[in-house]
Design a protein around this nucleic acid. Structure first.
Lengths: 350, 350
DNA sequence: GACAGCCACGCAACCGTTTGCATTAATTGG
DNA sequence: CCAATTAATGCAAACGGTTGCGTGGCTGTC
């Protein structure tokens, strides 16, 4: 039913190869002929069939994007940024969702492999070795996990976690808890590692609780443990969990930040709208989406370029953190000064 | 590089057509041969090339899904449901985002048309006539807009708006405002129509404010107008706006629900987590996603089946609505009883 | 024992494009 | 004025599958 290249060729009295060239190599065809062909194409409503083109060129002009959970507000800005970046280069994005299930990731990559030119793997839960194996079947860019030998883009969550712990300890909190994320998350391990060393450096105690589901419910579910543990400040794996946790704490009669301080990570739009407004570590998700697309499209066919991008994070101090029972540390001249509420403390990329 | 059907044929000593049949029509090939072919295919890591298959069968096994804004939490549950429904039938979903811009919708449909078997058009902002025109170029299922002659799935927001207005008027509110949605939204028109008639029926006054951007910012932006208008209760186009509005009202020193009651629409996950928890009209988004996929895949090639599905909505009463200045209407025996907070009032589909 | 029928499989055309090569016409240089 | 370029187009072989049709061998029937 839809017009094919042959219809256009017949209508404009040239060979199909000429029609093909008017679209894919216009400089090779006489301007006069070209405009005639274009007119016919327009008139017939002709649009090149991408499947057929893909068959011969080997490029589908599609990109796969696999995220753990579309419903997690962390991802949509990343997706939108990737989409608009891709669209600019005449690519389309295939978004899919694994429901936080490591075992479906593999299937999805394989299913996508044949109909895309590459896959953006965001926040993978599967093993490094499996990722490496898959990267031999289809070009891969990994987001939110560092992996040698593959192009990756990560947020500097270690820096963010350090900022958060420093902020809490400077407020006088000596007993902290870390509510960690899902099993298999590189980000969660990274946060844990960095938070522990930061706590040690400022002589605070850090209890790790997890792994947990990275959702509101996951945060709510640990509220009781937090209360029992007696800590006065919590760093959560992400904002969603922090928000769920605050809700759970209120059920147990604890107020934030008066009784317990809570810090999230991600700075999703929502964190500005809850009460109290959430103190959190802002991660540049849109930039990550753009970078990932750029990296995938950059190395045309040589798979050797394996750039590793690290994006910096910032601590955004809002209303969910307050003074703890310990002594405030008055900032020394040489010390990093905690910014006023609502402002932003950022460190340059190392 | 990747194995093709010919490699498998060579390795297993049969013709390519036999290999093809082992995958697309297994009953036509001898079980013994079949298992040999399957073994070779497995061994070579062969996976059929969907682009090539699409070329001859005319079916890509892909579905396009166009939404106004992925970052609006209303959509992710719909997307996830559509994805999982599609996956069950060996289809993939292409998600794209129009940034609430009517003019990019057309381009996206056309761009998708050639690489999908059909498009799910969610919450379109473009004109009916354009939709009809596009539906002749690619099978379309329209979600969140009623349109004769095309398969559609809509939520019964008219019913929802009526429930909301009745709820408010029963609480004693006589001056209501409707914060409407974006230009071009069928849902917004529908809500407006129904809310106005419900207000008239219960002798309340209804001020319409809009059109507005359907986001938190959009809600926040109308707070001042609401305050100036002197209304005591507001129905917002969606939860996001309701939440933004509540935030904006607090900036103007108004408390919800003590000073002003607010009702949202959608029942996004977030509406349970804000303070106060939002009273809202729950729309069955997941069911809509599933239904849309089913409808698209149902009518194989006959485009004549144009079922219209309407999904029922429910009023969920939480903490953002309270008594107004007017007299409470005590529920008559024959009246619909407002349910206890946290419960659900639902009407059967008409 | 010949014939109808069926089962498995091979053959080859086809889907809509791209692209290296051949062909023709027009242009340039010597 | 002819040979050598160059520009514009045609030709046909791919790309990786699917599918209608044909064929050979085997079984069962009378």
């Amino acid at each position: 039913m839809p017009a094919t290249i042959r219809d256009v060729a017949r209508e404009s009295g040239v060979h199909i190869s000429t029609v093909s060239r008017t679209f894919s190599a216009p400089h090779l065809v006489n301007p006069e002929t070209r405009s005639r062909v274009l007119a016919c194409a327009e008139h017939l409503g002709y649009r090149p069939n991408r499947a057929a083109r893909a068959l011969i060129t080997g490029r589908t002009h599609n990109i796969g994007l696999i995220v753990a959970d579309i419903a997690n507000p962390f991802f949509p800005p990343l997706i939108k940024a990737a989409e608009s970046q891709a669209r600019q280069r005449d690519y389309h994005i295939f978004v899919t969702d694994t429901n936080e299930d490591a075992s479906v990731e593999e299937d999805l990559v394989r299913a996508l492999a044949k109909q895309v030119d590459g896959v953006l793997l965001c926040s993978p839960r599967m093993s490094n070795s499996l990722i490496e194996q898959l990267s031999r079947e289809v070009p891969l860019v990994v987001v939110n996990r560092q992996l040698t030998g593959l192009p990756t883009v990560v947020m500097d969550v270690a820096q963010g976690a350090r900022l958060a712990v420093d902020h809490l300890s400077r407020l006088g909190h000596r007993h902290l808890a870390l509510v960690s994320g899902p099993r298999g998350s590189w980000t969660s391990r990274e946060i844990r590692r960095s938070a522990m060393s930061a706590a040690r450096a400022s002589d605070a105690e850090l209890t790790v609780i997890g792994p947990n589901q990275p959702t509101e419910d996951g945060g709510m579910a640990v509220a009781e443990q937090i209360v029992r543990s007696g800590v006065t400040a919590v760093l959560a794996y992400n904002d969603l969990m922090a928000i769920g946790l605050i809700e759970g704490l209120s059920v147990h009669g604890r107020r934030v930040p008066e009784d317990i301080s809570v810090v999230g990570i991600d700075d999703i739009a929502l964190s500005r709208l809850t009460r109290p407004k959430l103190t959190t570590v802002a991660t540049p998700t849109a930039a990550a989406g753009r970078a990932a697309v750029d990296m995938l499209l950059a190395h045309g066919d040589d798979r050797r370029t394996t750039a590793q991008v690290t994006l910096q994070t910032e601590l955004v101090i809002r209303d969910s953190t307050g003074p703890g029972p310990g002594p405030h540390s008055h900032a020394d001249p040489g010390d990093v000064v905690a910014p006023a509420p609502g402002e932003v403390a950022s460190y340059a990329k190392e």
